[in-house]
Design a protein around this nucleic acid. Structure first.
Lengths: 398, 398
DNA sequence: ATATTTATTCAAGTTATTTGAATTAAGTAT
DNA sequence: ATACTTAATTCAAATAACTTGAATAAATAT
């Protein structure tokens, strides 16, 4: 198991500059188009400091000037925004049966994707395939490798299952004791971030999704099982050992369905793709793909509706837990599940009354559907890189 | 309701120095006695930078030299440690029936405490009383006001209940719409931090308790209800609106006991001081104080043991939730409950097998008892201040 | 037209860092 | 004992990035 313990290091002029660049980029990301004086006031930096940073970002092509803001007194402020085509990132999702690649521009728009079915996902086989995929993506979008900010590699957690008491069989075989980041940085010769699918998906909603202006939220990820990604003040939570967010094994019914983890009544046995398949298999219906689920829903299939009702009941409980524990601005549902099914689940939720989230003057709905569809995990991988380049690391509480 | 949304600001030389001082102090706190070269390596700063900071900290009296480290090659490294008496902080707990004051030295040792029973906790009455208490504390410990780092004010959450749908009656009346920090900074003329009891208690375990070397952990706080404080990478979680950690209203038994929040089966109705009182009242036993609970436990009172068993069962579920969601290094139990009762609860837990925390090679127990006893909240308040002075704000993930 | 406001530019000035050379002092090998 | 190695420490200079202050530019308001 990899201990991802973090620790704080000292700052110096260079690290400070990196941080300030990110502060500026993050502000522009959330408020574009915007001007230097405005950034200066919001970010607690002198006009001159901001001016220098903007100039550098412009020279690098990350920002572009877009005219001047008129209608107010004083000299019109030059406005800047992201130059979406100035840089890009690649996300790779490693699944037991396939590799998925998504390429995002700096604004987080998906500009290329590819799915490659493979049977052997062992590192020896998958790594060369992934390197080829990344190369293909760069060729397809007609960019140079210098514009590649990095690659985000996503695979299902929890990591380090081999050290655990059979909580979960390693979902992608042979990757358990691999230092994913290191291996890929060597193979791809560019910055790499490795992350689990739920957290990556959560970040993607902030980079270019429903949470772009939200700093604190939970993301419930429908994968094979059920995952959770949490953002607090714009920072993703990772846990002490990288296994943050195993919400699938939270028990929502004592003595309920038997779970692969050995317990009974885990949420994941009621609300996940696998749970739907099992539930319907007993009734003689075989669903293996998301498309089939969408069809059943369209047909108002009573068995599937029954599953949705049960899943929604258990998810409602999970929402109560998340809201009361995290006090988030909102909860986002997303992942490898058709939008229509997620909408149906959200529609049938019975949101708990006794929750700190049950405020009178809410501005955002308590539960939203994510925007990145079922490519979420790969897009999330690419989002990790973009998020890092625009996420500052000095937090000041006011 | 107060929105405590935070945002990152840019850095400059001064802020950088503040940060680096904290990095150094935090390292010394966790590793004392230690030397400059060692700090330099661990904190990613040049020897000279560390040297300058150490010199300043020494001049201010926060650190003291304690001889040289011998036994290794090279010039013996001068060792430094905290000077516990160089500074102090005061914590105030505001309860419905009393004010509690605790004073800590820089190492987090409690050097003075006072409990004052009051009936009127309205701001108009309580604020002058608290100012007097702080003054008395400074006189008692024979220090000057310049050495006061600040005051931490603690009251039960959730805050902003008036805006909520009766989740919880405001526990300390009339404080709901008060900007606690501002009001006390004006009254006390020193830095003030306001926090809920559970989070403050969690921080106290890091400042001088069982979690001094632990960066990521959960603290389950037994107050009137049940609270949760969470530390991730040395930073306390606060939620989007300051109501993080309302674990008491997580449902552990669907359709169970009726709760004041309107729901049924909330954890708090099984495992809290109030739940014990209610449980025993039905059986004709009246317990209003912690001491009485301790006595019942000592006498092996079968009704009380029954309550403990039930509480432990529900707490075990909560532990499963916390471990799977947060992936902490450990979970700490503490608060306004006698140590013996907490120990009895811990003893009777049935820790879930299906948890990411159920690792083979654990070094820390899954559940620990906190060390600060039933003055926890006030000590926690004082700890907030100490924590802030030693907690850096640039996090680097390695 | 003139005053006011705000953004911007240019040119120092400041702070806290890093770098490099020289010094000190202990342990280790001969 | 003596010389060598290792590591901490000190001193002085160089550097990077930010802030400050004065001057200028271009709008709106009176």
């Amino acid at each position: 198991m990899k201990d991802i313990k973090t620790h704080s290091i000292g700052g110096n002029a260079g690290r400070n500059r990196t941080h300030n660049r990110r502060v500026v980029l993050d502000y522009v990301r959330a408020n574009e188009p915007t001007g230097r004086a405005e950034i200066s006031k919001s970010c607690g930096l002198s006009f001159q400091a901001v001016s220098n940073i903007i100039e550098a970002l412009q020279n690098e092509g990350l920002l572009v000037a877009v005219g001047h803001k008129t209608g107010e007194r004083g000299q019109p402020a030059a406005q800047y925004k992201f130059n979406p085509e100035s840089a890009f990132s690649v996300g790779i999702e490693l699944r037991p049966d396939a590799l998925i690649c998504a390429t995002l521009n700096l604004k987080g728009d998906c500009i290329y994707r590819e799915r490659l079915a493979i049977s052997d996902t062992s590192p020896a086989k998958a790594i060369p395939e992934i390197c080829d995929m990344v190369d293909r993506a760069i060729v397809k979008i007609k960019r140079s490798r210098e514009q590649l900010l990095g690659v985000g590699v996503v695979m299902p957690g929890p990591f380090g299952a081999s050290e655990m008491s059979d909580l979960e069989a390693a979902i992608v075989p042979d990757w358990d004791d691999v230092d994913v980041q290191k291996v890929f940085e060597e193979a791809l010769k560019c910055p790499v971030i490795a992350e689990n699918d739920a957290t990556a998906a959560a970040i993607s909603e902030r980079v270019a999704g429903v949470a772009s202006a939200i700093d604190t939220y939970c993301f419930v990820y429908f994968g094979a099982g059920l995952g959770l990604g949490v953002m607090t003040n714009g920072h993703a939570q990772r846990g002490a050992f990288g296994n943050f967010g195993e919400i699938g094994h939270v028990i929502t019914q004592v003595g309920g369905n038997e779970c692969s983890c050995g317990n009974y009544g885990c949420l994941e046995t009621y609300a996940s793709r696998i749970s739907a398949r099992k539930f319907l298999a007993v009734r003689g219906i075989d669903v293996s793909s998301g498309a089939e689920m969408a069809t059943l829903l369209e047909q108002n299939n009573p068995d599937f509706i029954e599953w949705i009702d049960i899943a929604a009941k258990h998810l409602s409980q999970a929402i109560g837990i998340l809201e009361n524990i995290f006090d988030p601005e909102t909860i986002v549902f997303g992942g490898a599940m058709p939008d229509a099914v997620i909408d149906a689940l959200i529609e049938r939720l019975e949101l708990p009354q006794g929750s700190v989230a049950n405020r009178k003057h809410r501005t955002i709905k308590r539960v939203l559907r994510g925007s990145s569809g079922h490519f979420t995990a790969a897009i999330g991988g690419a989002s990790l890189i973009i998020h890092q380049t625009t996420t500052p690391s000095i937090a000041v509480y006011s």
